[in-house]
């Protein structure tokens, strides 16, 4: 009998800790007929950037890692995180990303057993003042919280005053008037970090600017303890019970939050095409740098990215 310790770095009340991972544990217990069980410690055992390291070193047996924080280790996992690649359907994006993984870089995670990957609802651009952000000038005149990484770099490139902190610290920055706008939070983020009261309007871009992806994996030694039959059974259920479920929950929470925009007085505005073009242009160097890294890692970056974009679009229809 194998018992896995599964880490959850989100706050204990978040649906990844209360629904997604417990749901996976139930499935695993069911398909292995109780030969493999698992539990989640009450509090995260290690900080978000260290999830992969914690599973490798055996602090815990399984964990979820935000791929943006391990970009120096895995390149393929960042395919679905290339700006302007996503859609607004997380389940479709997740399926496309998993397909792309299987096709182009299936053995990328070589120190752990990768069981699932998923893409979450993209974030938007929000104004915290009565003036919406529509034009490039609007954008440049703002002090803006942005998700660290591509979004922060894009916003900085365009000339906004950028404050970038991990998403969990966005509330502090947004609620305390450090910024007057923010970019990168999806519905779940707006709700979880309680920034809705400081949000007055949302700017609709024709394609999502940026989407984040996660990986879920198990320690290699622990995995080896499990019989090949049970390994197969766990593999068979993981992507559906973790990846797809997580993506679905993110979308449904985001929809719920969007549905309250009217009563909260949050207005919707269409982006000025010139601003969108500027965002696209500012994002180009990011994808170029990624393509260079991918070829270094022996991955056919252009093909992988094209495949992902095509499949994500097809599946989203």
């Amino acid at each position: 009998k194998t018992r896995l310790i599964v880490n959850c770095f989100w706050p204990p009340q978040h649906f990844v800790c209360t629904k997604v991972l417990p749901g996976w544990i139930e499935e695993v217990e069911r398909v292995t007929e109780g030969r493999v069980t698992a539990n989640i410690p009450p509090k995260s055992v290690s900080p978000p950037p260290e999830q992969l390291a914690s599973v490798e070193k055996g602090l815990v047996d399984a964990a979820v890692q935000f791929n943006g924080l391990i970009g120096n280790r895995v390149t393929g996992a960042l395919t679905a995180m290339q700006p302007f690649s996503g859609t607004r359907n997380s389940i479709a994006m997740t399926e496309a990303a998993w397909e792309t993984n299987k096709k182009f870089y299936p053995d990328e995670f070589d120190t752990v057993e990768l069981l699932a990957q998923w893409v979450i609802t993209p974030g938007d651009i929000y104004s915290g003042t009565d003036t919406p952000i529509i034009t490039l000038e609007d954008f440049q005149s703002r002090k803006m919280w942005a998700l660290p990484g591509p979004l922060a770099n894009i916003a900085k490139e365009l000339g906004a005053g950028v404050v970038a902190t991990p998403a969990v610290r966005s509330n502090e920055v947004i609620a305390n008037g450090v910024v007057d706008s923010h970019m990168g939070l999806n519905g779940d983020g707006l709700k979880a970090f309680q920034v809705l009261p400081y949000t007055k309007s949302v700017t609709r871009v024709s394609r999502p600017v940026y989407t984040t992806t996660f990986s879920f994996f198990v320690n290699a030694d622990k995995w080896a303890e499990i019989s090949p039959e049970d390994q197969e059974a766990i593999r068979a259920i993981s992507q559906a019970s973790v990846g797809k479920v997580a993506a679905g929950l993110w979308d449904s929470v985001s929809e719920e939050v969007q549905a309250t925009f009217d009563e909260q007085g949050i207005l919707e505005h269409k982006i000025d095409p010139a601003l969108e073009a500027a965002l696209v242009k500012a994002a180009e160097p990011i994808t170029e740098a990624w393509l260079a890294k991918a070829s270094e890692a022996g991955i056919d970056g252009p093909a992988a990215l094209a495949h992902y974009r095509k499949r994500a679009a097809e599946l989203s229809e």
Binding site: S141, K143, K156, V163
Partner: peptide, 13 residues
């Protein structure tokens, strides 16, 4: 810097 010159220090935190 943020209030007077509209330029927070990037990565200040």
């Amino acid at each position: 810097g943020r209030y007077l010159f509209h330029s927070p220090i990037f990565g200040g935190t």
